[in-house]
Amino acid sequence: MTAVLEVNNVTKMFGKFQALNGVKFKLNKGEVLGFIGPNGAGKSTTIRILLGMLKADFGNAKIFGKDVWTDAVDIHKRIAYVPGDVNLWPNLTGGEVIDLFLSMRGVKVNKQRKENLMKRFEFDPTKKCRAYSKGNRQKVALISAFAADADLYILDEPTSGLDPLQERVFQECVQEVKEKGASVLLSSHILSEVERLCDQVAIIRQGSIVEAGSLEDLRHLTRIQINLRTREEASKLVEQDWVHDLTYENGTYIFQLDADHMDDLIRFIQPHGVVKLESAPAKLEDLFMRHYETTEGGV
């Protein structure tokens, strides 16, 4: 697989504050990467470096094999960007701004496709931008991004002002571009959205990537919730170091299992006569929370 986007040990200081410390991840062609992390972790800083607006102090980042700082203009011809906080010129209409953005990307605009998107997002392009709510301003950026093909979409919390219906439209759009073979970098706080759309996840905390990989792989790193009922008591479970937070209620054991010890669990419980075994896959949220909660000593 060819890497569309590669970030190698990027470090960025703002004065004495270290915003990014050796950030490293990559995104392959046709993949969607969920870029998640708490506020202030460095998501937007990373994205701005990728867009060639901030200059990395150390390390380098490449998009399409080109340097993001020196070849910004060439790179930008093939990408579409949606920021989380969209501000527009108050005295122009949404339709005018969309056309401007598209014309500057230098791509051919399929008018039908643009109209179609406006309809799907229920967007009225004839109003002046000063009259738009946050969600509507965001739609301007989203429609400009999806109305023409790009090889890489960089989306920085793109749905923060959308209602649930339009968020679904957004998710469809991401699926569609993915099917066309484009790559997407999606920074988001909506974990269900990331879970549904992304193949890969990179978690950033305090300026460093703390976890990166496919969602599948990450799930293996985390814990699975198990509900277990056995004919005989299995009180020795509590002594196993791959069992966490064990409770016993009405004859059912409820606990967290380290994902890579499923085999051990099966072997352990088999002699006790299994009546019921339910397992729930790890949610991204659990994974995320585990990283967020271990901030002791930080900040």
């Binding site: 607006m53 500057m104 990307r105 230098g106």
Partner: peptide
């Protein structure tokens, strides 16, 4: 920021 994300110098 939005203009710079487009292929502008």
């Amino acid at each position: 920021e939005m203009l710079r994300a487009l292929p502008t110098g």
